[in-house]
């Protein structure tokens, strides 16, 4: 469970101090899905970075299961990211020289997983997102949607507790966007992940059971109905999405 209390983040840009977050209080239960929306520069990506342990607040605390990410050592924070948090980026952020399988393996390297097991788990993760035939392709040989699937496989291969997505459909066309969102929602719903997604896309934001809107560093929450918390098990997803979820789940042992 996440508990953010009075989280403030200030940046200094030249002589100017920018307050990206202003005393944000937020609780996210295990298995919750939360979509964060807001205008550019409103602080949504900064909030995601605090939640993901990628940055520390200027003041306030960010607790994950009782551990304050703002005050633990850099080494412990790095380890926590490696074990518990999966992150998906808008620009996919794949290593351009590595194959799809090797890119997925990079998430297992800090966990000390042996090479043979690493390869096997990465291949399974890729098969579960529909890229079983693309294991040896480098990113430039894949479409945008396929690259994001590789990134999803990389985020989930380590069986994280939390899945963070920073505008995961920002660089995708409409059709691919729906596929990816459907895949992510299916994975969240089926396997009980805590799923937090930043988006500026209102159509995606409307689908979320819980919406956090950030403006000028301040947050407001809206309950939009629907299942707020993931309930593991088959759901009324599109057949294609169900297939991905089933394959992925089998591979991950969820």
């Amino acid at each position: 469970m996440y508990k953010l209390t009075g989280v403030t983040k200030r940046y200094t840009r030249g002589k100017e101090t920018v307050e990206a977050l202003r005393g944000v209080d937020l609780t996210i239960e295990d298995g919750d899905q939360l979509v964060i929306q807001g205008p550019t520069g409103g602080g949504k990506s900064t909030l995601l970075q605090m939640i993901g342990g990628l940055d520390r607040p200027t003041s306030g605390s960010v607790e994950l299961d009782g551990v304050d990410l703002a005050s633990i050592s850099e080494a412990k924070l790095t380890r926590l990211r490696a074990e518990k948090i999966g992150i998906i980026f808008q620009s996919f952020n794949l290593i351009p020289t590595l194959t799809a399988q090797e890119n997925v393996e990079t998430a297992l390297v800090p966990l000390g997983v042996k090479p043979a097991e690493r390869r096997e788990r990465a291949a399974e993760a890729l098969r579960s997102v529909g890229l079983g035939e693309r294991l040896t392709h480098v990113p430039t040989e894949l479409s945008g949607g396929q690259q994001q699937r590789v990134a999803i496989a990389r985020a989930l291969v380590k069986k994280p507790k939390v899945l963070l997505a920073d505008e995961p459909t920002g660089n995708l066309d409409e059709g691919t966007r729906d596929d990816i969102v459907g895949l992510l929602e299916g994975l969240w719903h089926e396997y009980g992940l805590t799923f937090i997604m930043v988006t500026h896309d209102s159509s995606i934001a409307r689908r979320a059971p819980r919406l956090a809107t950030i403006k000028a560093g301040q947050i407001s929450l809206t309950e939009q109905g629907g299942a707020r918390r993931a309930t593991p098990g088959p759901s009324a997803q599109a057949p294609e999405q169900q297939q991905y979820a089933q394959q992925f789940g089998a591979a991950q042992g969820y």
Partner: peptide, 16 residues
């Protein structure tokens, strides 16, 4: 920057 930042975000320690 993006490459190394991503690796760190994935949990790669600085020494790696």
């Amino acid at each position: 920057v993006r490459e190394f930042g991503t690796l760190k975000a994935l949990g790669w320690p600085s020494r790696k």
